[in-house]
Simulated assay, not measured.
Amino acid sequence: MLDGRDLWDYEHRFLHRKVALVSQSPALFARSLHANIAYGLGEQSPEEVRQAAQRAGAHRFIDGLSRGYNTDAGDTGGQISGGQKQAIAIARALIRDPRVLILDDVTSALDTESQQQVENEIYEGTARSRRSVLLISHRLRTVERADRILVMEEGQIREEGTHQQLMRKRGAYWQLLQTQQNGAEGQRPQAGEWASVAEALNSSL
């Protein structure tokens, strides 16, 4: 459902304009980093691409490359690291200014500084743009500021609430947080363990 209507009621081109997805293993193309960020949008100025990269925490590493934004990503992005691919994919989503942004564990390969940049964009940038963010994450630290947290097990919602509410319940969310604080931060839960999905902000198209 989207705004109370079945997704099938929407014309797919409309959804493509309004919804952006960044997956755990994003696909890049054998072309420049500039072209990868602006992919599918036609001509985008260097300044527009740079601003999107800054918001995604990608500008810092791109600026350090000898060819900068003209660097070829290589086939499937093979010329850059996994974390850099994630940052480029996030920039590619943000430059579209989507009303709904879906992020599937996208900070898993980012360095600490880039991860902090992305988290700031998720929460502070979302508040400014009135964007809805669906953040799927196993790193509970990244979802603590979400407006609504859903804890899922085997496809079923087991708990729902804010970080403070779920901590007071001392249920599955609390247990997983204790596990991560004791040294399992960032590890993907094994079969049968708890994962979390956080919706950072509610918005309307």
Rank of each mutant, 00 (worst) to 15 (best):
E48V: 06
G4N: 03
E153Y: 04
R148P: 03
A52I: 08
N120M: 13
Q164K: 09
A38E: 14
R145A: 09
S45K: 14
D105I: 03
A109Y: 14
E193V: 04
S129L: 11
A146P: 13
R96E: 09
V118Y: 07
A58V: 09
V133I: 08
V118W: 06
T126G: 10
L7I: 07
Y69D: 03
R31Q: 12
E160Q: 13
L28S: 06
L166S: 10
I102F: 01
I88N: 03
A87S: 15
L7Q: 02
V133A: 09
E43D: 11
E119F: 04
L103I: 14
L176Y: 04
V118A: 07
V118Q: 08
G82C: 12
L15D: 08
Q187T: 06
G171I: 07
Q187S: 06
R99S: 12
A198D: 09
S108V: 00
R131S: 11
R99N: 05
Q190R: 13
G74P: 14
A146H: 12
G171N: 12
L41H: 08
G155D: 01
A35E: 14
L166Q: 10
N36C: 00
N182G: 13
P46M: 08
K18T: 15
M1C: 07
Q164E: 15
L33R: 02
T179F: 09
Q86K: 02
S114V: 09
G192P: 05
M1Q: 09
H16K: 13
A172E: 13
T76N: 04
Q165I: 04
A73Y: 05
Q54T: 03
A89S: 15
D147Q: 05
Q190G: 14
D9V: 01
S45D: 14
Q165L: 05
D75Y: 08
N36Y: 01
S25Y: 10
V143A: 11
E160C: 08
R55N: 08
D104R: 01
E144N: 00
Q44A: 15
P189Q: 03
F29I: 13
E113R: 06
L134E: 01
Q51A: 11
V118E: 07
N182T: 07
L134D: 00
Y39R: 04
I62Q: 03
R128F: 13
Q178R: 06
R99E: 08
Y123P: 10
I136Q: 05
R31Y: 06
K169I: 08
A109D: 14
A172F: 11
S66D: 14
R148Y: 11
G77T: 13
R170S: 15
E11S: 11
E119R: 10
Q165R: 06
E113W: 02
L94A: 04
L41Q: 12
L110T: 07
L176P: 00
Q51L: 10
V143N: 02
L21E: 07
Q79S: 12
A109K: 12
K169T: 10
T71A: 07
A27K: 11
N120K: 15
E47R: 12
E154F: 04
